[in-house]
Computed example of a mutant assay.
Amino acid sequence: MTMEYSSKIKELSKLPPKVKISLPVFSRKAKNTEHFYTLFGSLTELTTKTEENGYKLKKPETPTKELLEEPELITTINIGDKKLRSVACLSEEEICTTGYEVSDMKCFNIQSSLIKTIKTKSGEGPNDIAVTGDGDLVYSDWKTKTLNKVKNGQIEEMIRLQGWVPENLCVTSSDELLVSLYSDDKTQPKVVRYSGSKEKQTIQFDEEGNPLYSGNGVIKYVTENRNLDICVADNKAGAVVVVNQAGKLRFRYTDHPSATKNEPFKPRGITTDSQRQILTADYHNQCIHILDQDGQFLRYIDNCDLKEPFGLCGDKKDKLFVAEWTGKLKKIKYLG
């Protein structure tokens, strides 16, 4: 051992005990290989964090579709019910909607023809609707505090809550439910993940113990992004709140400065697309905000004669459906 190498070892031994040194791991290659690495061995590859609190975090992907310079209005369906607030795609051929003061869910084909009407058991309008991986409609009922599934024309109760009221919901890529809830006294909000009828995860506070969402009974639409982030449009707070799959806060989007959008940002519906972009309805400014997966504003959809956009959903081909408070449903192409 040379004097110089020996002195280096002594210096390292004097470091505080809490200091950890991570060195590349040298691996000697087998003989007679034709690879370049035969001469030099190899270094272990640097890796990024892929797990948190037991959840695997998805890596970013490069977008494969571009935003159109001018979004196109494809179809307008006059639902007939005012105060539309939710829309869900049952399939590429069938869309369901529900409104604020109606006790049923209406399903239409893409030719605008009414296929069926489904009435709730309680006689009250659903707070929100979504579609399972099997193509069944699910809805939340504030009056009975239940989450229900419509299967083969029959309504099945999935979950009954106590002390909490279910508001908005979505079906995840793993066919679980994400539901925004508020307490009976409307002071506590949270998002809960259900696997079947079992409560699997509660998302309520940030790392400092502060509430993630505004404490009230005002709508909080929820959706899952392709990277498994959970996105909530918190209307009262005027923000899109995004946490990762483990429930850790990633960012809050609170609006984009604009000379033409002067009304307060109070997001309603929210959805995501294949490019991991987040779309949220800006009711008062008659537009849709498009954000990237990290909360950076990309553009507005503010043409297509939008009037009071409320509920949103996207189909498998990235066509956007917008349920307007006026009673119209619009299908929009915004990706090339």
Rank of each mutant, 00 (worst) to 15 (best):
L169N: 01
S103E: 12
I129D: 03
F265V: 01
K190D: 03
L137M: 08
T76C: 05
F297S: 02
E61S: 15
T75V: 13
K14H: 14
I9N: 10
K190G: 07
S140Y: 08
C170Q: 04
I74A: 03
P166K: 06
L212I: 06
R226L: 13
D234V: 06
T2I: 09
L177R: 00
G135D: 07
S195L: 13
Y194S: 04
K266I: 02
P16M: 12
P63E: 04
Y5R: 10
P60G: 10
G269T: 02
V150K: 00
P63S: 07
R226N: 09
D282F: 04
Y300P: 01
L90R: 03
D282C: 11
F297N: 00
K330E: 03
G295R: 04
L181V: 03
D141V: 05
Q245L: 08
T62R: 11
D315I: 03
A237C: 06
P211K: 07
G247N: 01
I219H: 01
D234L: 10
V191I: 14
C170G: 03
I95T: 07
G196M: 14
V102F: 10
V19A: 11
G135E: 05
Q296P: 02
K20D: 07
T272H: 03
N32K: 14
R268T: 02
K149E: 09
T202P: 04
T326P: 02
T202V: 13
D104T: 10
Q275D: 07
E45S: 09
N32P: 02
Y334Q: 00
E157R: 09
F297G: 01
N127E: 15
F297P: 00
E45W: 07
Y300W: 10
Y100E: 05
K307A: 06
K151T: 12
P211R: 15
Q296G: 05
K58L: 15
Y55L: 08
K331W: 01
K121G: 07
R252L: 13
P189F: 08
R226E: 06
K65M: 14
H284M: 14
E94L: 12
I219F: 14
D315E: 04
G314W: 00
S13K: 13
L43R: 14
N285T: 02
G314E: 01
D302N: 12
M158T: 06
T280I: 04
Q204H: 11
T254F: 08
D318C: 05
K18W: 14
V222D: 01
T38G: 07
D175G: 09
A130W: 03
L12D: 06
S91V: 06
T120F: 06
K149A: 14
S103D: 10
D292K: 08
L39I: 07
A30D: 08
L73W: 03
V25K: 15
L306G: 00
L181I: 05
V243R: 04
F40Q: 10
E70L: 08
K116F: 09
S13I: 06
D134V: 06
S258C: 12
T326C: 09
F251D: 02
L12I: 12
Q277R: 13
K83Y: 14
I74K: 07
I155F: 07
D136V: 04
L178N: 01
D273P: 01
V218C: 12
P16R: 07
F265M: 06
R193P: 01
K266H: 13
E263A: 15
M105T: 05
S180H: 07
N225H: 08
A281L: 05
E208H: 13
C107W: 06
V131P: 04
V218L: 13
V19L: 14
I118T: 10
F40R: 12
N127K: 10
I290Y: 00
